[in-house]
Design a binder for these strands. Structure first.
Lengths: 236, 236
DNA sequence: AAGTGGTCTAGACCACTAT
DNA sequence: TAGTGGTCTAGACCACTTT
């Protein structure tokens, strides 16, 4: 029922205004209540309308906070424009610093695996990645990760071990001297920093790391509000 | 039916593995097919599972690309920790430069409204905003925007005029000298740049602007994969 | 042919809001 | 009390994949 989306985009239903009741919509389109419900639900989680039980369905006005950015877009940018190589710069077993130990919830000084990688596209460095892993002899996690040389493998990352969840944070940052040198940028250049912590099935952290991305090559973009879907006059 | 989410998080259903068929789930939980369908749909758009018609439902392995970041989090950060004032630095009518004209799809030299604002939290500048608007005497848009002095009003922004859609882009950038001075940071400091273009009902651009945010104060974070919802043993 | 997900119907009932 | 959104049932039928 993109008809509804279209009507909102074209201003037939104005922000703040009320949509027809679900029973009216059912009659207008000659569908079952369940079908109307699903259509309205789609509009709700697109953020186009809000509903209040006992009152009705209303068109939301544009709110910047609704915007969602998909990381997919960034990883697509990594892959676009040429073959991407993953180059392993370092793989060593080192004792955890206090900081690493705190995040991974292990004892300070416990053995961890430290990995540094550089992603290159057509020989040009585009992303620098550092990662700390809990060292566990009983699991083949490390071996699996060492052999990650494809971009696909790195993004699915710890997938080889089948990890179920993780936390991600994006910040704007300035490149340090080593990162800048590796990425062939002036020190202090702005960059995206994507920090990640992956957890095991028991909910305990297993991996902590950062992707540093040249800011001139990557961005996050999105669309808020109606349109972009339909300005025509089709269904739903 | 968070039971399913919980089972995935706890590893009962492993990444790559197959879930029971929808008919099995219907019997196990004694619900109607439609209910199972909805539960599975929720898992699908959380990115936890994929389905293939004629084959079955499978647990997805973790993919960084699934991650979505909500701008709401940033605007919440703006508002948290104290009262936010919106200070209007400049409001002038100027001819459009070639660049502005191209984005707003008007003639170069056409009259535009140029606004500069500073967001302050507890007297401390946190966000610098610049915006170009099409000047249209027939609409009270400008007057409405000039009177925006609350954070809420700025975020809903052009809402006063009831605009239906917009495009947003986030980039990491380095502060220029004027922005740095206003934000009381060293020039070249890293910052988030949130660029926006808002459109009218006819789909034509109306406004183009940028929010520059101190990177030390703001971040985007999110969670991917299972858990965070339920590690217990409830429904859905 | 059998089994899978995907969509839909035509109602029933509930929770809430307005009057 | 009447009208609203919200949830659910118990089937039917379709599209697709596997054997």
């Amino acid at each position: 029922m993109n008809t509804l989306t279209s009507r909102i985009a074209r201003g037939v239903y104005r922000p703040g205004g009320q949509l027809p009741t679900e029973r009216q919509l059912r009659d207008e389109f000659s569908v079952s209540p369940m079908t109307v419900r699903r259509a309205v639900n789609i509009l709700i989680d697109r953020g186009l309308v809000t509903t209040t039980r006992g009152r009705g369905t209303f068109v939301r006005s544009l709110d910047l906070g609704e915007a969602v950015f998909r990381l997919q877009e960034v990883t697509d940018q990594w892959a676009s424009g040429g073959e991407v190589d993953v180059q392993l710069l370092e793989a060593s077993i080192i004792p955890a610093t206090a900081e690493v130990a705190a995040v991974l919830k292990i004892a300070a000084g416990a053995r961890t695996v430290y990995l540094r990688r550089l992603l290159l596209r057509e020989e040009v460095p585009i992303v620098y990645h550092r990662e700390h892993l809990i060292y566990d002899e009983t699991r083949p996690l490390v071996e699996a990760l060492l052999q990650v040389t494809s971009l696909e493998g790195l993004l699915r990352g710890t997938e080889s071990a089948g990890l179920p969840s993780g936390d991600l944070t994006i910040q704007a940052t300035a490149l340090g001297s080593r990162a800048a040198e590796l990425l062939r940028m002036p020190p202090g250049s702005p960059a995206f920093c994507l920090e990640h912590v992956f957890n095991d099935f028991d909910g305990k952290p297993v991996s902590w790391g950062w992707f540093l991305c040249r800011s001139d090559l990557f961005r996050l973009s999105t669309h808020v509000g109606a349109d972009r879907y339909a300005r025509g006059h089709e269904e739903a």
